[in-house]
Design a binder for these strands. Structure first.
Lengths: 214, 214
DNA sequence: AAGCATGGATAGCGTCACTATCCGACACAG
DNA sequence: CTGTGTCGGATAGTGACGCTATCCATGCTT
């Protein structure tokens, strides 16, 4: 398959594919001649994954490059590679801008979160991980706005999140090979986020209608 | 309080506040003289909300303007206003780009989702709502990539989402006034998204360590 | 042999969220 | 009353990002 066909089958413009090649998101095809390259089904799949990460998962191009490089890195052990999705991602929202003050709200948030993680026994993945920083920033913002964000409510949400994680890993374990599991770990982590959030919004609308009458 | 103090207290640069004023995200202060304006606590609160929506919730400026306008619109009834957060938002990820083909994957996804919504009795908020479109796009992408996305798994997630929505509305009902509830509906919908996603990632890491050994 | 498509390189575009600069009008100190 | 500084408002510019348009030499296709 040549570039034009890859474009046709994926729906991605050739100029964009060239851009992804240049950026190292997509390996180049096998050179047939000086002006021709051949792409296979693997390229098509990778291209769709790239698009999904960038467009659906809103992942920056640079991040996608790092994540995909890690996915391809056979030097790493399975456990590290499976964790990459959860680590390399700015995902939902970045942490505080560099130099943002460590104000009262942030300190309260940190206490709340550390208490929560201790309670759950999730202390292994504490400060320093992107997810922790994102959580901290979001909770601090909630506090700064004066919205309720107490321990019991956070605990309730954390337990719900644990259910989601269980469902996620049930899916992962269903996959045959390790390579597939690693790629799936990234893809499912990122792509199920909009699914989860959309379902939450639909459920909210439904529940709101039930409670406040429609 | 004058612009400079508003800036100091919120941590937002004056130039940015001026930008928000210009864009209609923040009402102008009371004019003291031709070159002076006075801002109150309400302005500080609104400014923080704007920042939160844009930076934490990643909401486009134009969307934030619409959402805030609707929040302020006292002509609307409570139920409509409470729904605004769930409706006005491109939120997690946009729907398909205009002109994206209605391919096989999309059709399968639509069937899957319609079946799910029917099963749950959530048919009131079907096609046409942003959440539905986002969900459709994400599920279609998963299918296109060959990842599992079957009815039982979606149902499981939907039930979890319903738990989140319940928790959300429990929080909302705890607020005294209707005005507060409306603003909180927007703020909590948007700001709890990164909280939920971060918790999911932490839970994933934890569960992954448990299953695959760390 | 003609003509067009190909892959690669380079530079440009459109959007978005700010941000830097300038300006005339005031406030306030001396 | 005068000088100095700050204010709010307007306009244009910036930097990041994700593409996208153009050009070119090559060489496949007919």
């Amino acid at each position: 398959m040549r570039l034009a066909e890859l474009s046709a089958r994926s729906g991605v413009p050739t100029a964009t594919i060239k851009f992804y090649l240049r950026e190292g998101l997509l390996p180049s095809g096998e050179r047939i001649s000086a002006t021709q390259a051949d792409y296979g089904g693997e390229h098509l799949h990778r291209l769709r994954l790239v698009r999904a990460l960038i467009q659906v998962g809103r992942m920056p191009v640079a991040t996608a490059r790092e994540v995909l490089a890690a996915v391809d890195d056979t030097e790493l052990d399975q456990h590290s590679r499976l964790g990459i999705a959860a680590w390399s991602l700015p995902g939902p929202a970045q942490g505080p801008n560099p130099g943002e003050e460590d104000d009262a709200a942030t300190q309260t948030a940190r206490q709340e979160i550390d208490g929560l993680l201790e309670h759950l026994g999730w202390e292994e993945f504490g400060p320093g991980t992107p997810a922790y920083e994102t959580l901290l920033h979001a909770v601090a913002t909630l506090i700064r706005l004066g919205y309720p964000c107490e321990a019991p409510h956070l605990r309730r949400l954390a337990q719900i999140a644990a259910q989601v994680a269980e469902a996620d890993l049930d899916l992962l374990e269903g996959l045959p090979s390790e390579v597939e599991q690693v790629e799936a770990s990234v893809a499912l982590t990122v792509l199920y986020e909009p699914v989860l959030l959309s379902l939450r919004r639909l459920a909210q609308a439904e529940e709101s209608a039930r409670r406040f009458g429609g």
